[in-house]
Structures are given as structure tokens and as C-alpha cells.
Computed example of a mutant assay.
Amino acid sequence: MIVRKLLFFLFLFFVLQGVDAQSRKVINLPDISGYITLKCDFHIHTVFSDGTVWPTIRVQEAWEEGLDAIAITDHIEYRPHSKDIVADHNRSYEIAEPLSKQLDILLVRGAEITRAMPPGHLNALFINNANFLEREDVNDAIKEARDQGAFILWNHPGWKAQQPDTTLWWDEHSALLKSDMLHGIEVYNHSSYYPEALDWANEKKLTVFANSDVHAPMLTKEDEHRPMTLVFAKSRTLGGIKEALFKRRTAVYFGNTLMGQSSVLEPLFFGSLDFKKAALKLTNKENKVVNIKNNSDVDYELELVQPGVGFDAPETITLKAHHVTPLALSGNSEEINDAQNIDVYYRVKNMFTDSTENILVTFSFRNN
């Protein structure tokens, strides 16, 4: 009897473990006006290059972590498992595709052109046939990707193995840009942030990316998330993603940090928040509180940009994820009595438009 009970509890334990392993995390980030916010990772590897997992594992991981889309980008030129795994460059995509459709994960056909600097490593997304990228001359390989209609991005531009001292933009990259053979750049790769890449993206009109570049099994903790590229797409389709990438509607998301153009970051910020729009009726020597609910996964860290006219506001405040935070305002002069609106200007310290600048947001409250 005791043995039977023990076996039952062991069976129950393993069943529950299996159920837990199949659960899907929900990433809470809002859509913005006119667009769907898609959570994507466009740089991952399998055993068909130098990764250590089967392609279907990458799809399963993406589903469990709440992603919408991935691109398996196995190396064209570097395949250390080729003695054991004999296949062409399209095989990892072909194996992963059926499960991606079953789990509703958008799977982008991609590959990594893997060369010394310059130009370094480049991901080609939305290709038709990875085998045709196997060319002796790197420019021929990149041109083939472009001719297939690919979106091409420069991976880990400040990778110490290739740029050990200074992260440089090379003449070769200018030539690629001029020839429509470079469209994006990784600002964040795995655990490395490249501030130069964010500035180059603004200067040279490149699309920004954050990707995991995962090789081993993805072991993300429950309260963490992998680096990802947020894509603001017109539709949750491969075509919608491709259009958004070429239009530069992306943001970088790693840790508690977001980076990109203010045109997407500001609506993402305000789309995360709920607060009452009723008139405050704040007067001199009076206090009012606006309760701000943050529905997103991001703790927004705010710093006051300038003093209020006729009122005081907190110098710093953190709108904690999934919490309601009180914003306390107090009248400090007679000017506030007749004010029609109260405008509070904050810098969002963990939302960057370039390597040194944060986005500025304005809370505008009706007063009378």
C-alpha cells in the first residue's frame, strides 16, 4: 500500500512538472495606435550550426516565453556539427516550421552570413533559399540575400572577438548601406549593449534590434525575459513584420530598458498606463493625488524635467509594473487657482532614444 501511494505521488509529481513546462508566459506590453506590438527574437541557433538544441526546441522555448515570432539564423560558414548532421542550410527551418504553425509562432526564414571584420556577421531575414548564400566572396553572399528580398542586419557590432578595443563603423558598412545591403543593427546582443549602434541607427536610418543569439538551451528565469525586438506591425503576419522592419518600427527591450524612436516609445509608455481624466481642481496650499496604474511589465523610472507652474510634483517617481502608484501634486502659489491644465514634464530614465538621451513625456491633467 505504501509503495503504491509512493508511486502515485511520483507519477503526480512528474505529470505536474510536465504541465508546468508547457505553460506560456504572458508578456504585458501594450499595442500602440494603429499597430500590434509583437515580441520577437531574430537571432537564434540550433545544432545545424553551432547551437546545441534541435530546431523544434527553439519553437517550444519561444512559445513558453510568450514570443510572437523568431528567426532561426544558423551560420552559413560555421557548422561544427556537420560530421554528425549532414543537411543543407534550409533544414533547420524545415524541421521547425510544422511546430511553429501548430503553436502559432511566426517563423522567419533566415541565416547568418559569418565573416571576419569587416563586415563581420550579418543576419539575412526573409530569404527564400539559404543555400544560395554560400558564396566565396562575402559581397556576393550579401547581394544574393538582398536579391532574395532579405532584410539584412549587422549582428553584435561591438563583439570583442572582432572589435576588441573600439566599436568602429567601417567603410565596408557604408558601402553596404549605399547598396541597399544593410538595413538594421543589433543594439543589444545576448548580454551586451552597444551604445554606438543606437547612435548609428539614428544617424544612418537603420532599424534597431535586440536579440538573444542563444546557442545553448534557453534557461530564462520566471521573473526575467530574453532580449527581444519589439515590432510594431500592422498585422500579426510575416508580411506585417517585414513591412515594419523596413519602416524602422521597432524597439529594443532588455531587462527593464527600452530603446528606439520616440514615435514608438511615447505611445508605448502612455499605452501602459491608466489614470482618471477628471478635473483635479487643485488650488494653492492644497494637495491632490492622481493614482496611475501601470499595466505593463516595465517599471518606468521618472525624473522631473522642470518645476511646475504654481504647483509641486515629485522629483522622482517609479511607476512600478502591475501596481498603482500615487502621483502627489501640491499647489504652491495663487497661479494654480485659475490654471485650466496642469502639465507635468518627466524624463523616462529607462527609455532611450540614443546613447545619452531619454524620452520626455508630459502628463497633462485638466484642472478647472
Rank of each mutant, 00 (worst) to 15 (best):
A111H: 05
S263E: 11
I342V: 04
L245W: 06
I70L: 09
I32K: 08
K277G: 02
H215Q: 11
V309L: 04
T356Y: 09
E334F: 02
V15Q: 08
R226Y: 11
D84H: 07
S263T: 10
K204F: 10
I44Q: 06
N202Y: 07
S179A: 15
L103S: 15
F270Y: 10
L125G: 02
E303W: 00
E303G: 09
P98N: 15
D180Y: 10
L122C: 08
T229R: 12
L268N: 03
V108R: 05
G18D: 05
D171E: 15
V214P: 01
D68Y: 04
F352C: 04
I27D: 00
G149Q: 05
P80L: 03
N332K: 05
L238W: 09
K320V: 09
L182C: 13
Q306S: 06
S33E: 13
W200K: 04
L153K: 13
E61W: 06
R115M: 00
K204V: 00
G308R: 05
V53I: 02
I36M: 15
D31T: 10
Y300R: 03
S333A: 12
I359P: 02
Y345I: 14
S23P: 00
F132I: 04
F275Q: 03
L360K: 15
Q17R: 14
F11T: 14
G149C: 01
Q102I: 13
S92G: 07
A87M: 09
S330E: 04
I336P: 01
Q102S: 12
P119H: 02
E266A: 07
G34I: 03
K5I: 13
V47F: 05
I359A: 04
E65I: 07
T325P: 08
V26P: 12
P118R: 11
K204I: 01
P307I: 08
E357S: 03
K281D: 09
V187D: 13
F232Y: 10
L329Q: 10
G158S: 11
E94P: 13
S212T: 14
E186L: 01
P157Q: 01
R115Q: 01
A279F: 02
F13I: 15
S333D: 03
L10C: 10
G239F: 08
K205E: 12
R226S: 14
V214H: 12
E222F: 03
E61Q: 01
H75Y: 12
F254Y: 11
L280S: 07
N341F: 00
T283E: 03
L273S: 06
K143I: 11
L107G: 03
G18T: 13
D297R: 14
G110N: 04
F132C: 04
H81M: 10
D274K: 03
V361M: 01
